[in-house]
Amino acid sequence: MIVGLAFPETALIGLLFAAIQFGAMIYLASLGELIAERAGVLNLGVEGMMAMGAVGGFVFAIETGSPWLGLLAASIVGALVAMIHGLFAVVLGANQVVSGLALTIFGVGLANFWGTDYEGLRPDVQFVDVDLGPLSDIAWIGRIFFQQSPLAYLALALGCVAWFGLNRTRGGLALRAAGESAATADTAGHSVVGLRLFAVAIGGALAALGGAYLSLSISPGWTVGVVAGRGWIAVALVIFGAWKVRRVALGAFLFGLAMALPSRTESFDLPWHPILWSMLPYLLTIAVMIAGALILRNRPADAPAALGVPFRREER
């Protein structure tokens, strides 16, 4: 589809820049969902947690005058809101689908309530894109990779930390065990409830960072509906990336591309209406699920085996 550069160079640079920007934002949220799901907890509250992160980050940034403090506050707010799901789905063993959806409704509602007085305010606090001197000045690459918001690099760094934590540490091993076979983790001396609460809290904090990315960097400010269904994309991305930190990163770029494309279809002379292009992430996810179901029939599935299954030790 990209043949012979029949469109302005700047449009392609703009597209790739935006793909990384949207990709990094969604990656933060997906990373959080991935961690929760690897511990065995499906949290469909991402949309709500992102909304809370968006409003919380914005409010605190305005009140303190610092986007970084806003970001910190957003992550705390996200973790706290996520603990509602933790309490119901993990501690009380309620159905995770119901509890997660209720969290989305709750989070979106509370964010709208909280944000009433801040709606439409033009913020003077927001993240400015970095300037890495000579690096940022390189043609093409400089604009695409080295003039992003600091949050993009934070997302990358957190991805590395998450990969190392999950795959190379004792805690990560335990967390994955809790998601694959809770009774095994329990017998080995790990607190399944503790591990899952931790994972849900981290998941909430990361989802909120994704939300704050929206309200403090991509489109600074708070408006009702700013998250606009991106929480569901984050949930989809985890499945698209087969619950693997690196594959989700790759998927995030692809989904970022798909999110950036609809507003630029004209520059690229693409067929179809831009709105049809905006369906791409969802269609891709469904396609991946169907392909996965068709291909992986003799191996254990990619999904954590205990995903969605509450754990309670002494029951007979």
């Binding site: 540490t169 004792r170 091993l173 694959e180 076979s181 095994t184 001396g189 790990h190």
Partner: peptide, 20 residues
């Protein structure tokens, strides 16, 4: 009480591994 998708070594050290 084994995690099917873990290796033998991962299963053995689960619960008593070094921090890293």
């Amino acid at each position: 009480r084994l995690v099917p998708t873990f290796t033998v070594a991962e299963n053995v050290v689960l619960g008593a591994a070094t921090r890293v």
